[in-house]
Design a protein around this nucleic acid. Structure first.
Length: 420
RNA sequence: GUGGGUGUAGCUCAAUGGUAGAGCACAUGGUUGUGGUCCAUGUGGUUGCGGGUUCAAUUCCCGUCAUCCACCCCA
């Protein structure tokens, strides 16, 4: 085969597209209910936007971006996530001035140059939302409950909500120092990856999965003890509200965000048994991003979910989605004249919003009925010489097998009555 | 970026150092014009691509591409 879809990209074939449409429909309904409006931003932006927001030292920026020069030599990048572009447009279009609170949602493809594996493609779809303006922990709760409701409506079970606070740059700096201090004499016993993490980003050590290293990590300082008063209070409130709403969560002091803009409360929703990439959705607060990108000093919270991963769970849990669509009428013809008559009939029936299908090179009636069956037709019209001369059609009810003869002039009414 | 597994018909998969087979799907017939079941017959593959070893490679070796799993990282 000469041409193939490129590495890490996939075609979404009709069957999957149908399932995705359903997921999107559910998401849109929930967003609508919460007052979030859709926003669509370009797939590519200037590279600097992502460097500034996600962070120059993050893996995403240093090795995972699709970056290219355009014909004028400007450095552009395919978006690796959705938040940066949205904050850019919120600032650029002064959206935050129109209402006290800006609630936006988005869905679309994201691009990261990573090694593909289960639940991880180079082109992948995210659905996400941003809540810009409030800093009250109740707004964190809105994002978390919205995410949970989405999964609940889809019928997903066995999900776990993980919660952590990543603090603000101030408490993070203090925490980082204490970690360096703690690991100073232990790092030589740990894996080589951790050696690098130690000098680059000590908080990443907490994410290490080496059993030998876990021993040290478990006794390491916890970020909870290093949060500044502001971050501390915010985190306590979030936990209090979750408790108040009887939403179960697991504290995960080792949860580390891969995007630098996150502050304070951060959360992840995981599904056990998906493999290594088991985070279905993640999000958190990013109070400094709007200002860092040149906007006003506005706090914000948001989340994003990975569409492919959610689809994976829907399949795994055998969640039945609305079944494939039926066809109202299949038109089977015998002979050139009948085919000609059928194109007129089909047109008329489609004007009545009936779903009508046919074969353009009809062969035997048997083959056509087989097609009708494949398309799950409710009725098949049979038009041959007999019918043609009498200006009527044989109408076969595909579920009962019963047949009636109906004049062409009455077909519309007959089918409309029986197809509803 | 690193390590390992896999790549054969549209799909799911067999097989063999002597140029490939099943099930499903598709087509035709059994029924002059009647589907979903059944029976019969048939179409369909340069065995991912390139190179090497060999009289002979789909099989062994190397490379490459893709995919899967894990690391890394993340949604």
């Amino acid at each position: 085969m000469k041409y193939k879809s490129i590495r890490g990209t996939r075609d979404i074939l009709p069957e999957e597209a149908r399932k995705r449409q359903y997921l999107e429909k559910v998401a849109r309904e929930i967003f609508q209910k919460y007052g979030y409006e859709e926003i669509r931003t370009p797939i590519f932006e200037v590279t600097e936007l992502f460097q500034r927001s996600i962070g120059d030292d993050t893996d995403i920026v240093t090795k995972e971006m699709y970056t290219f020069l355009d014909k004028k030599g400007r450095s552009l990048t395919l978006r690796p996530e959705g938040t940066a572009g949205i904050i850019r447009t919120v600032i650029e279009n002064n959206l935050y001035r129109q209402k006290r609170i800006t609630r936006l949602y988005y869905l679309g493809p994201m691009y990261r140059y990573e090694r593909p594996q289960k639940g991880r493609q180079r082109e992948f779809y995210q659905i996400g939302a941003e809540l810009i303006g409030p800093d009250n922990p109740a707004s964190d709760i809105e994002i978390i409950t919205l995410t949970l409701e989405l999964f609940h409506v889809l019928g997903l079970k066995n999900l776990t909500l993980y919660l952590n606070s990543v603090g603000c740059p101030r408490c993070r700096a203090r925490y980082r120092e204490s970690l360096k201090d703690y690991f100073k004499d232990k790092i030589k016993m740990m894996c080589t990856d951790c050696h690098n993490r130690y000098s680059l980003n000590p908080m990443r050590i907490l994410d290490c999965k080496e059993d030998g290293d876990r021993v040290y990590i478990e006794k390491s300082p916890k970020i909870f003890d290093y949060l500044c008063q502001d971050c501390q209070e915010q985190f306590e409130k979030v936990k209090e509200y979750l408790h108040f709403l009887k939403i179960d969560y697991t504290l995960d002091p080792y949860m580390v965000r891969g995007l630098d803009y996150y502050t304070k409360a951060a959360f992840e929703i995981k599904y056990e048994g998906l493999g290594a990439q088991d985070t279905l959705a993640a999000g958190g607060r990013y109070d400094r991003l709007v200002r860092d990108l040149g906007g006003p000093d506005l706090p914000a919270v948001g989340f994003a979910l990975g569409v492919e991963r959610v689809m994976e769970v829907i399949d795994k849990e055998k969640i039945s989605l609305p079944s494939g669509v039926q066809t109202d009428v299949y038109v089977a013809t015998l002979g050139e004249e009948a085919l000609k008559e059928s194109i007129k009939l089909i047109r008329e029936l489609r004007h009545e919003n009936l779903k009508v299908l046919n074969d353009f090179n009809p062969t035997s009636l048997k083959a056509q009925l087989r097609q009708a069956d494949k398309w799950k037709a409710k009725f098949t019209l049979i038009i041959g010489e007999e019918e043609l001369s009498g200006k009527r059609a044989t109408v076969r009810n595909m579920s009962t097998g019963g047949q009636e003869t109906v004049p062409f002039s009455e077909l519309k009414g007959y089918l409309l009555r029986n197809c509803s």
